[in-house]
Every structure is written in structure tokens, then in C-alpha cells.
Amino acid sequence: MEYILVTVILLISILIYFRIADQYNIIDKPNHRSAHTQVTLRGGGIIFPIAFIVFCCFNMHMVAEHYWSFGLGLLAICTISFIDDVITLSNKIRLSVHFISVMLLLYFTGAFILMPFWIWPILFVLIIGTLNAYNFMDGINGMTGVYSLVTLLSLAYINKAIVEFTDMDFIMYPVLACLVFLFFNFRKKAKCFAGDVGSMGIGFWVIGLITLLIMRTGEYKYILLLSIYGMEVVLTIIERILLKENIFEAHRRHLYQLFANEKKVSHLVISSVYAACQLLINIFLMYSQLPIWFIILIIFIPLGGIYLGLKWKLKKEHNL
């Protein structure tokens, strides 16, 4: 019953936001990097910080005791991202807030206590890099929502059937937010896009859960719950470096962009394939007892080969 009520609250919240966004012209206009051609409402991902606020209302004592640092980090990164959706901010401002948010996230997960101090800078780089990967991959209808939903449901299963690492509501609230968001985004003509507030918000929540799981189990293999995003972004960055391009400028070199823009494949099909590939990896991870280095070889050698082969073929076909 609680989850039904939460879903209704989130649905009403996003509908109210649509009216505000429409009134104040918070829209996404297509540009040379875009995979869409129509003006669409931006910032629909505001539903993710709203989901945490609703979580606080239903779990006030638990939030005050355990989740306050996570909440501060989430709301800080979502606030700066929403402002950046409306007016472009300098990289220094955004990165400063990201740094503070990640520091709060690591405090929440206990990483500062459980990990040696020389690991801390590595964790900062990994988390900020993963957050930006979430942002880079948020380019077509359904991608952020479906991919995050698969990862969150995998985490919910791990929490229930393998090892309990957090309160189940802390996983289910973003699941419900993803479902409500996808109702408006997983369409041929999306009603809204997530925007930076959405990709950063849900990315922060998912990374927080994965970090909690790793700290609880000591199993670093769970970082591979985001392996499809990681592989795509890392290989694309390497490609752009080899081509001597500015990796901070907008581009259309991701494989999903080539399929969407050059091959005109449905956004919904592409998003579903990415999510399905990650789901297969997640199922393998849950029950594999192999060492992490061997798991990485099993996953990335074939997938990397397929990825590079498809990319080479598409670029050759379209003279890119």
C-alpha cells in the first residue's frame, strides 16, 4: 500500500513540474549532438530528488540517524545540476559541488573508516567519473531510466536473496521514481528528458547503493553492475584522445548515438538492448565465484570486441 501511495505522490509531483517547466520554458532544444529533433521538456529527472524527499517523509527517524549525509549529497548535486540545466554554470562551480557531494556519499557508506586513506582519492575519481558517465550516456529516450531500473532491481534482488546491505525501501523508492519517469520518457516522442538533474540524481543514488554493497561484502565485482556504461564511456574517451579531440566538447561518437543518428534505430530498442546486456552481466555477477580479474576478462574481451566491431562497421558505412 505504501508503494502505491508513493507512486501516486511521484506521479502528481512530476505533473506539477511539467506545468512549471512549460510556464518557465525549461526545454531541451535539439543541437548537433542531439539524437532527438523536437523541443522537449527538460529536467524530468527532478523526480529522483523528490523521491528521496518522499522517502524522508515516510522514514524520518531512519533518515535522521543513517541517511542524512546521503540526502545532503544528493540534494546538493541535484540542485547544482538543475541550475546547470537552466543556465550554464562554470566547470569549477559544478566540480566543487560534485566533490562535496561525493565526500558526503563516502561518509555515508563508511568508506572513510573501512578503506585506507590512500584509496580515498581513487574513490573520488572513480565516483565522479561514473557520475559523468551517467551524464554522457543520457542521450536517447529510455536509456537512463531503463538502465537504472535494471541495476536497481538487481540490487534489490541481491539485498533480499544474497546479502542484506541496506533497507529495502532505500532501493524501492528510486525504482518507483524510474517507473514514473519512464512512463513519460520511454516513448517514441518523449514527454520529458531527465536532464542533468536526472542523470546525476539517479546516478548518485545507484552509485551510493553499489558502494554500500561493496563496503558490506568486500566484493569489488559489484562495480561491474555498471559495466556497460563504463565500457562505452572509457572506449569512447580513448577513441577521442587518439583522434586528438577535446574530450570535454559535445560529440556524437558513442555507439548508441551512431545507431540512433546514422542507422535511425528506435531509441527504445537501443535502450532496451543496453539494459538487457547489463541484466545478463548482473545475473552472472550475482552467482559467480570467480576472481574479479577473471570476471572482467570474461565480460570485457567479448563485449569490447563486439563494441569495437560494430563501431568500425557503422563508421565505415557512413564515412565517419
Rank of each mutant, 00 (worst) to 15 (best):
C192D: 02
M231T: 07
E232K: 02
T130Y: 05
K188A: 13
A276T: 12
D169P: 04
H251E: 10
L149W: 00
F294Y: 13
L72A: 09
I238G: 09
I299L: 12
C178K: 06
I119V: 11
F186R: 09
R252S: 15
L290W: 12
G73V: 01
K244H: 15
N282E: 06
H267G: 08
H318V: 07
E232N: 14
S154A: 13
H61P: 08
L320T: 08
S148T: 10
F165T: 02
M215R: 03
L235Q: 07
I223C: 15
F70I: 11
L303W: 03
I292F: 14
I298R: 09
K311Y: 07
I214L: 03
L155I: 04
I292T: 15
G203Q: 09
L72C: 12
G43F: 00
A276V: 14
H251V: 09
I87Y: 01
I171A: 04
V97H: 04
I171S: 06
G218W: 04
A250D: 05
F204Y: 14
Y307M: 00
I298G: 07
R216I: 11
S101A: 14
I223L: 15
R252I: 03
A64S: 15
H61A: 15
H36G: 04
I296D: 02
L5I: 15
I4H: 08
Y287I: 12
C192P: 06
T88P: 08
F55P: 06
T37E: 10
N185W: 03
I16W: 01
N319F: 13
C57H: 05
F181Q: 02
I53H: 03
N319T: 00
D167I: 13
L209T: 06
L176M: 12
I237Y: 06
N132P: 04
P121G: 05
H318I: 01
F18A: 10
L104P: 07
K191Q: 11
V163T: 15
I83Q: 05
I247Y: 07
L243Y: 07
N31D: 02
I50G: 01
V233F: 13
L314T: 09
L243G: 10
N91R: 06
K160F: 11
M286S: 11
G195K: 01
I46H: 08
P174S: 06
T37G: 12
G71T: 05
F124P: 07
S288C: 11
K264P: 01
Y107C: 13
I140R: 01
S227T: 05
N246K: 14
S101D: 04
L75I: 08
N185E: 00
W120P: 03
L123G: 00
L95I: 14
T7I: 15
G44S: 03
H267S: 01
L104M: 10
V146Y: 00
Y274T: 09
I237G: 09
I119A: 12
N132M: 01
A190F: 00
W68T: 13
M137L: 08
V234N: 06
Q289L: 13
